[in-house]
Write a protein that binds this DNA or RNA. Sequence first.
DNA 1: CATGAATGAGTCTTCATTCAT
DNA 2: AATGAATGAAGACTCATTCAT
Lengths: 222, 222, 222, 222
Amino acid sequence: MRRPSRVVGAAGQPPDSLSGNRAQRTLPREARRRQLVESTIECIANRGLAETRMADVAAGAGMSVGIVNFHFDSKQALLAETLAFLSDEYLKAWDQARAAAPGDPVSQLEALIRMNFEPGICNPRRIAVWFAFFGAAGSRPTYQATCQRFDDEYLAQLNGLFVEVFGEAGRERARRAAMMLLVLWDGFWQNILLNPDGFDAVECQSVCMAWLRGVLEREAAP
Amino acid sequence: MRRPSRVVGAAGQPPDSLSGNRAQRTLPREARRRQLVESTIECIANRGLAETRMADVAAGAGMSVGIVNFHFDSKQALLAETLAFLSDEYLKAWDQARAAAPGDPVSQLEALIRMNFEPGICNPRRIAVWFAFFGAAGSRPTYQATCQRFDDEYLAQLNGLFVEVFGEAGRERARRAAMMLLVLWDGFWQNILLNPDGFDAVECQSVCMAWLRGVLEREAAP
Amino acid sequence: MRRPSRVVGAAGQPPDSLSGNRAQRTLPREARRRQLVESTIECIANRGLAETRMADVAAGAGMSVGIVNFHFDSKQALLAETLAFLSDEYLKAWDQARAAAPGDPVSQLEALIRMNFEPGICNPRRIAVWFAFFGAAGSRPTYQATCQRFDDEYLAQLNGLFVEVFGEAGRERARRAAMMLLVLWDGFWQNILLNPDGFDAVECQSVCMAWLRGVLEREAAP
Amino acid sequence: MRRPSRVVGAAGQPPDSLSGNRAQRTLPREARRRQLVESTIECIANRGLAETRMADVAAGAGMSVGIVNFHFDSKQALLAETLAFLSDEYLKAWDQARAAAPGDPVSQLEALIRMNFEPGICNPRRIAVWFAFFGAAGSRPTYQATCQRFDDEYLAQLNGLFVEVFGEAGRERARRAAMMLLVLWDGFWQNILLNPDGFDAVECQSVCMAWLRGVLEREAAP
DNA sequence: CATGAATGAGTCTTCATTCAT
DNA sequence: AATGAATGAAGACTCATTCAT
């Protein structure tokens, strides 16, 4: 666990100093919030959602407990923000993957599959945090809403890509393929979390790719 | 030293009261434990794992708080038992599905797919509870172990069935198909939990079936 | 810990049996109470007064919890009875020691000193129980009263013996000697309890005897 | 997740309130711990060890329950600290008594006797607390260890003083005298606790002094 | 009489939130 | 803004006592 490292200037410094590092002393509001959210992610990954204390989060960020409640009205707000942060991170990775890939639907799909098993997105800590929220989502409409909203969006995009592949006549096939792909990601993530010895990201990715090839071949073949 | 909690019971009530929800005074040990586990499942489904109080569980079972700790040494023990109960229930459904189906591997696989989306197994309450435990598994080795042990077993059985289908030469294909099927179930469950409007059990089952048919056709075709 | 050994007849036996062992089935009330008191002493010696549970006492006596409350209205009553039992046991040992010794005051005093360090009276378990009650006596007038009443009696008797030795003129000396002896016993007991490595009963007794000899010599000498 | 305990404090009260029994908001860590320990002593004296509740201790110190666990990890830790505090207090009184007295062994011994019956050390409340711990010591090795360690030390010091008096040839007499004195203190304390009507500190002290004079005279006489 | 499951008030402990400094 | 001691409601767990069987 990170030791509390004073982010603000050395304490010896007179508080009324007008020197240039005064700006440092008060980090931008957003930077502080970001630090706290990342500490929250660490804590949840390490100890679980229910075992994450405000004090742990504060200590992990090298701040005092008071400051957490200063930046987030309540623990619930901090957790909601943390989930939003993860969602956003994933959304950005998604958009970036599409933007960086060639425009043809197959390349786009392959890029998304790759993205979903990249270490930055698909690592045990991140997955543990996602599932901590999923576990609470059953009884927390807020979390469920956040997750659902994104799912709808991703499903729609995947659907669009498969429609490009299968054509208008393959609308139903496209829909099912989109569902399959979305579900495969979730399922693999879950198994990477719960059965890390049996599943590793590289193989999971390759199974997804193989599935995609199969789907496309059957399209081409008959 | 504690004072007697109740010197005279709410004994005004006639013993032949019709309020049937009052549990019988004495019941077999296992029956009581079972009642408490089922109340726990209800509570977790309703309020979540972290928000489930011993008092809620007791109230849900129409008992007093003391009796919960009488039958389970601690809240953790109760939760562990609840997960074990769910695991066992699923295992029984699995075995029963296989036993009731014709012996050929395809029938067996179809039976398992059907089982996984049957209302008794795949309903929002049950899934919420499963995911509550998955969410905590990231930080609770006990839960992870319970989940992992079963996963290994199911993966092995699915693998065996697909080997029967694909033959010895298709060992690698069988392995991947087994992983795919396992993962599909998990992924669909997750989406039924998080996006109930977008996914319903019937359609999920049909997508799984379609996937299976596709896998088999490709086996038969070339 | 003794295992619960059914005192009553084998359960197979018809309850309405009129056979002779029926008398066995229901042990005399006093015998039952005595068993429970002795179990209480064991428990207090092993775990302490505060850590002694009614259930422990019952288990130690091989009975059910219900029977304890049947024989003693409350835990307090059981504890009070236990202290009374110890007091009585000590009183009997005292009287017996005096009765068995020659009538001269010195022999009587020596007999009492010997009695106070006999294994039946002065053993770590008994002492631990005594001090458990002394510790509570500070805040429990009932205990204090029991202890005080006996102390007064013993002090008076010792006083009488020393008056016999010192004569009417030595009334004050007798009073002080009596106090000293009473206090020596208490103090040695305490040290046997708290510092068993530094104090053993045999040496304590011998120091008491030496003190007594000293007192008597000084009487004889000048 | 817990709801805020108090959204708006009883803030109507002006900060310059005269209710002096309200502790200052922030005080040195040690000062707070000290306050709590002293409240603990009061509680044990009033209600006994087993009947002392954390809430009582907090209330007695004019603080909230939470702060007790903030300064002491558990009730056990608080009690252990309280015993340590008493031990330390006694040790200091002991050392101070010796330091303030003339260097000759007899003066030292007299000073120690006086100290042991001074109101600051030998008062009903303090004694009740000591015996509460002694009573629990039988089943709590921690307490026993604390008591024993000091006893050994005091016995050694007394032994040293009596050796000075009796000379090398009187080693055995010195040892016994040391034991006697230690034991007299304990015994008198016990009787002051249990039989306050029969024993008062002043007379106890005088009996000890008389005993000491007797021991010394016998040394001088023959 | 005897049993032991059941009851529930009481206790310790935790921790989100507040607020004097 | 920042700190961290302080607050106190809430929850897990204990255990004397009761009572249906």
